[in-house]
Nucleic acid binder design. Sequence first.
RNA 1: GCGCUUGUGGCGAAAUUGGUAGACGCGCCAGACUUAGGAUCUGGUGACUCAGGUCGUGUAGGUUCGAGUCCUAUCAGGCGCACCA
Length: 945
Amino acid sequence: MDYNFQEIEKKWQQRWRERKTYRVVEDKNKKKFYVLNMFPYPSGAGLHVGHPLGYIASDIYARYKRQKGYNVLNPMGYDAYGLPAEQYAIQTGQHPEKTTFQNIDRYREQLDKIGFCFDWDREVRTCTPDYYHWTQWAFQKMYNSFFCLKSQKAHPIEELIKHLNAHGTEGLEVAQTEQLDLTATQWQQMSEKEQSDVLMNYRLAFLGETMVNWCPKLGTVLANDEVVDGVSIRGGYPVEQKKMRQWCLRVSAYAQRLLDGLDTIDWSDSIKETQRNWIGRSEGAEVNFKIADSNEEFTIFTTRADTMFGVTFMVLAPESELVEKVTTTEQKDEVEKYLTYVKGRTERERQIDHKVTGVFSGSYAINPFTGEKNPIWISEYVLAGYGTGAIMAVPAHDSRDYAFAKHFGLPIVPLIEGADVSEESYDAKEGIVCNSPAAGKEPYCDLVLNGLTVKEAIQATKMYVKEHSLGRVKVNYRLRDAIFSRQRYWGEPFPVYYKNGIPKMVPEECLPVELPEVENFLPTETGEPPLGNAQIWAWDETQHKIVDKALIDEKTVFPLELYTMPGFAGSSAYYLRYMDPHNDKALVSKEADEYWQNVDLYVGGSEHATGHLIYSRYWNKFLFDYGYSCKEEPFQKLINQGMIQGRSNFVYRIKDSNTFVSNGLKDKYETTPIHVDVNIVNNDLLDLEAFKAWRPEYNDAEFVLEDGKYICGWAIEKMSKSMFNVVNPDYIVERYGADTLRLYEMFLGPINQSKPWDSNGIDGCFRFLRKVWGLFYSRDGQLLVSNSEPSKESLKSINKLIQKVSQDIENFSYNTAISAFMICVGELAQQKCSAKAVLEPLVELLAPFAPHLCEELWEVLGHQTTVCDSPWPEVDEQHLKEDTETLSISFNGKTRFTLDFAPDASKEDIEKAALEAEATARYTEGKQIVKVIVVPHRIVNIVLK
RNA sequence: GCGCUUGUGGCGAAAUUGGUAGACGCGCCAGACUUAGGAUCUGGUGACUCAGGUCGUGUAGGUUCGAGUCCUAUCAGGCGCACCA
C-alpha cells in the first residue's frame, strides 16, 4: 500500500478541527510554554514558500514541548492595518477592510493546509475594534503618564501636576522634550491651553513639533525611504523639510532600560548589537559657552571633554533656535541664504553626500577653559536632533571638524603628543595630552591636563565641569522618540478630540473609538488627512458619542483627531492579547498574564530589529511599570529565521527567432535569457509542453536540446512575481504533501540562515516519508508491525535517534535532526525491524516534524489518543553502549594501526596494548614513546622521541 | 567609514566544540527490475595520481603531537547603521 498523503492529511486536519486538538486553556497543574511567531501582514499575493519557514520551525518546537508535558500556547493572528490595503482601496474604491478580510481568509486556507498546531480560538486581527480598543487604551495610558528619571519608570501625570502646583519645575527629574523653568506661581497662573502645552513636554504620548519629509503636492508626510533625490518616489513631487505637530511616543525615556534589558534576554548577539547601536548610548559632558558681548549662553554636548583646549570654533545646527540669536546684522543675508539652501535639501540628501558647507554667524562664544573667543558657525553637518544641536569643534581630533576647518581656513590646534594633524585629524582616544593649557600662555583656569592619558583627561575635565558648574556630566542616547501619527485612513483612529485646540482624551469607558466610514481614502482637498472625509466624526462631550461633524459647536461637540496610528501600534502588545483574546474588560486579565508570563520563544525576521522589536519592548516596559504585564521583557528567547530567496530559471532564446537553446549549448548562439516560470521546471529540466502552453507566443516554440533534454539556467533573486520564481506552498502540498513540505523547509539548512528556495531536493524528503510508511506497510498493503522482541541493533538505532533528535530540537538544528531520521529509518529498514517497541518511539519523535503521517501511524499502532499528547521518548543508555571500541593508534599524526578495546578500557590498558603492538610492528623506528594521548573519537596519539 | 555575520565538493549542508573533513540529502555514474520512466531498489561519487600515495575547509602566517574549529593579518560576499560630536 502506498503512502497516500492526500487522504491522510485531509483526514487528520479535519479531525484536529473537529476535536479542537490544539485548543489550549490555562492549567495551573502544568508548566506553561509560550511559542510565538511574528504575525503576518495579509498581503494580496498570498503566502509563498518563504513565509511558513518560521511557522514550521516554531510549530515543531511547540509540538515537541507539548510532548514534553508543557501546556503550550502557540497562537496566530494578523497585523491587518497597513499601506498596501489602503493603496488598493485608493485605486479601486474597495474598502480596505474587505480586501484585508479576503486576504486573511486566503492566508488561513493556506496555513491550514500545512498542519500547524495553532489555537485558532485565540486569533487576533489588529484592525478589529475589540482589538484596537486596547491599542487606544494603552495610548491613553501613555498620554496620562510621565517618566520619572529617579525611579526610572512611568508614573501618572497627576503626580507631576501636583509637583508643578507645589514647586513648579524645581527639582523635577523627568524625561522631557526641553528643559523648562517655571515657578509654581507661574504654572498656576497659566491658561488651560498653556498648561496643556507644558504637560506635553512630559507626557509619554505627546504632541510634538518634529521635522518631517513633507510633500505639499501629495499632502502627506513621507518616510525617508519614500523620498529619493529630494522628490517623492510616487509622482516625483518635491519634498521639503517641515516642522509638524505630530503625536510622538517618548521611547527615548526608556533608553537605558531598553539597553539594560538586553542583558537579560536570550537573543542573538548580532540583533542585540543592532539594538545597542540604535539606542546609541554615549557618555560625555554638557558644557555651557557664553556668547561674547551678550548675556546669552548655550550648551554643547561632547564625549571628548579632554579636548576643551583645542576648540577653535563652534557650530550650530541650521535648525537650532540659537541661529537667530547669534546672527549679526552684517551676516544676516549670508545666513539666510545658507538656511534657504539647507531647507531645500532633504534629510536623505544630507545623509548621502557630506558636502562641507556652512556660514559664519558673526558672533563668538567664550571658551570657559581658555577665555578665547571662538567664532560661531552654522553648518548642516551638525544635527539638530542629537545632543543640544550645537557643538564645540576640535578640528585636530575630529575628522568632520577637521574637514570644516580646512575648507574655511580655521585654525587647528593639536592636543596629543606626537599627533600629526597636517594631513588628517587624529581621532583615536589614545595618547598623552599636551597643549592643555598651551605652554607660555597665561592660564585662564586652574585645570591642567598635560601629561594625562586621554581617558584620564576626560575624567578630570568632567570633574572640573561638575565642580565649577560649567555644565554637567551627561549621558546621551541616539534613540529618538517615535513619531506616532500618520496621515492615512487604514489605521487605528486616535481616541482624541480637540476642545478649543486643546487635545482631550475620549473617556476610557467609551473606547474603542471606531474607525469611521469614508467615501474617499485620499487626503481632502484642503490637505487634511483622509479622516477629514468622514462625516460622522465629531465628539459629543455630553452624550459621550461620535456624532456628525455638522454639529460641531465648540461647546459640547468637538472635532476628533484626523490622524491615525502607525503600523507598529497594533503589533506592539499583541502577544499579551493572545493570552486572553476575548476579554472585553482588560487587555489581558491578571490571571492569564501571570500564567503565561511572557513569550518563551519568539520567531521572526531580523529586519524588525530596530522597529517592532524596540517598540514592543518599550510598550511592554510601560505596561510593566503599571503592573499590566508581569514581565519586563516580552520575548525571552528570539530566533531569527532567514529569508527564503527565489531561485529563478531561464530559457535562452536565439536572437530574432522563437527557438530556445539549452543552457549547456547557449554559448554557441547569440541568445537572450528569459525568465521562465519555475513551476514548469523540475530539477532545471524544462517541461516543453507546459512551456508551449504557458504563453501564446511560445505555442510554436522550437528547442535545441542537449542529450534530449532542455536544461534551464538559474540565478538567485528575490522571490517575486515578476521573476516568475514564486513557489506557492499549496502547490508543494498538493504534489508532495504538507509533511514533506515541513520536512523539506527544515532540511534546507539552518533556520537562521538566508537561503534560496530550491525545489530540487524535495524528492529526498518525500522518499524518506515513504520509507517510514514502508516500515509499517508492505508494498501489497500488509501490516508489518509486530509485538516481536526488537533486535539489539534496532534498539541501538532508535536510542541513538532519541538522543540526537532531542538535542537537535533544543538547539533548533532541525536539518541535522532530519538527517538522523533518515539514517535511522535506513538502518531499521535494513534490519527489517517490525517491532512495535521500536516503531512507537520513532513515530513519537517524528510527530513534530510530520504530524499528519505520525497521527495516522499512531492510530495504526492502536492508539486512540492524539500523538501530540504522547510523551517524548527517553534515551535508554544501556542500548547505546558499544561492545568494543576501535581505536586508531597514530604516531605523530599518522595513523599506524587500529586496536579494539572494551569501551571502559583505562588509559593505562590502552597504553600497554599500544606498546605491545608497537613492539610487534616496530613502527616507532627505534624511537621511544614519551606520551600517550587518549582523546575522544577513538584516537590514541603516541608522541615519539 | 563603523558594527554584525558568513566563506567547506557540481549544489544545500554536517563535523559530538581542538581529534579519521565532507555525515544526510540533491545531482551525477554504474547496475537490477521494467514495454516505458521525471517510478523503485543496490552500489559508487572531494581533487590529482607514476595507484604508492599526494593535496584539500577564501588567502597568508602562527600556536599544537594534531586546526574547518584557537590566534594574527588579509581578501570576498551578505545584512544593518551611517556627519550621533
